[in-house]
Design a protein around this nucleic acid. Structure first.
Lengths: 231, 231
DNA sequence: ACCTGAACACCGTTCAAGT
DNA sequence: ACCTGAACACCGTTCAAGT
């Protein structure tokens, strides 16, 4: 009932690396990759652009931290969800699918992963995959190659998904987009693009997630199949 | 012996899309991704920045054209080098290796491919891979998945190579770089990064090209191995 | 039709000055 | 120690004006 509150006005929480990074994630999610600006970020944090530099070295570190925050959550969830009883190839599928969905929800993560050299987010994924590769019983000499192949495939898909998200105007739904691509493909030069044209129709009944998992499956088969002398 | 030449002074060749694109490629190769600027490009072409816009819509179109010019050459060479007698999986390896080497020579191509949605350069690669997948005898229903998996893997590696090239200062050689990474990996937290640490040593005797081909081999095995009910 | 280059509306980053 | 915000050195892109 007191007209005077305990504390004067609601004070601004002090700036911190955490607050900055989470504001950056929000900005990236809502306005897209091009929307993350030190000025926009400063405004959202009710401060000047220079203040951010006290907590973060620069834009690339900020992007890396934002990416890492998303990746850590996803990989952590996959690890937590793995009770150790599911067969390792299922655990790999679950981890990969978790990443796929996260990148679908935050396309900028895809671009960042694709352009980040062996940084922290990438290492987390590599480690997560690698452990399951070990569990798969891959001989030591082949573990690095196997984990790398899976990682690179995931990164390739991530980059493409992000690129698509960038191109498509926010409103368009998946079916509409695929239809546009399918039509474009079927109009390609018949001599130069025989194969592409031949699979264009398949695009309309195309399911990104299923296709992604099928690719993972292919690589898993390759990993677990003893090599024949020459195919 | 005439002191007067046939034509007055050497006239500037007129601007053209071709000249612009090839100047852009040169700039990208010499100064790197950050070096391609409309101002720098204009200076090299002895004109103003605005002139470029008469022939090219904008920066992304320019990058796409530059990428396409490199990719067209590589894919073309791979197709020309294929006498049709080599087994298809060898043709795929040759194409993939051609791309790998091109991206190694022009790292910016890697970044561009990784962030380009289904544009012209990507389609050329997809088509090239797809034809060999057909030749491999993959049933029609699996051709799209197989070609996509190979493409995405190539793109993932391309992106990483480009990212590494961006990080490393131009002077450093491969061995030195790998050594730095290996040392960093072996210093990671032993609990969180068991797998990564366990393969760190392997990095020192690591051959990028061989590793890349091994990954291709894994996927090829996956493609050509009939799926078992559950691995 | 094609080129010129100043001008516009942005960037990331720095830094003297404040608290 | 931390924040402020003007200023610097760039960008891509546009556009009136030229030839």
């Amino acid at each position: 009932m007191a007209t005077r509150t305990r504390r004067p006005e609601r004070r601004q929480e002090p700036l911190s690396r955490e607050r900055i990074v989470s504001a950056a994630v929000e900005l990236l999610d809502t306005v897209g990759e091009g929307g993350l600006t030190f000025r926009a970020l400063a405004e959202r944090l009710a401060t000047g652009p220079g203040a951010i530099y006290w907590h973060v070295a620069g834009k690339s570190e900020l992007l890396d931290a934002a990416t890492d925050s998303v990746v850590t959550t996803v990989v952590g969830a996959a690890v937590a969800g793995d009770d150790g009883r599911a067969p390792p190839h299922e655990a790999i599928r679950a981890l990969a699918l978790g990443l796929f969905d996260a990148i679908d929800a935050h396309p900028w993560v895809g671009s960042e992963l694709a352009r980040t050299p062996s940084g922290s987010p990438l290492l987390r994924i590599f480690e997560g995959i690698g452990r399951q590769v070990q569990a798969l019983g891959v001989p030591e000499a082949g573990q690095f190659t196997a984990a790398s192949a899976l990682l690179h495939y995931v990164l390739g898909v991530a980059g493409q998904n992000a690129a698509n998200a960038r191109t498509v105007q926010p409103g368009t739904d998946r079916a509409e987009f695929l239809d546009t691509v399918a039509t474009a493909w079927s109009r390609l030069d018949p001599d130069e693009y025989t194969f592409t044209r031949s699979v264009a129709g398949r695009l309309r009944e195309h399911d990104d997630r299923a296709e992604f998992l099928a690719g993972i499956g292919l690589i898993l088969t390759g990993i677990t199949t003893p090599t024949r002398p020459t195919g």
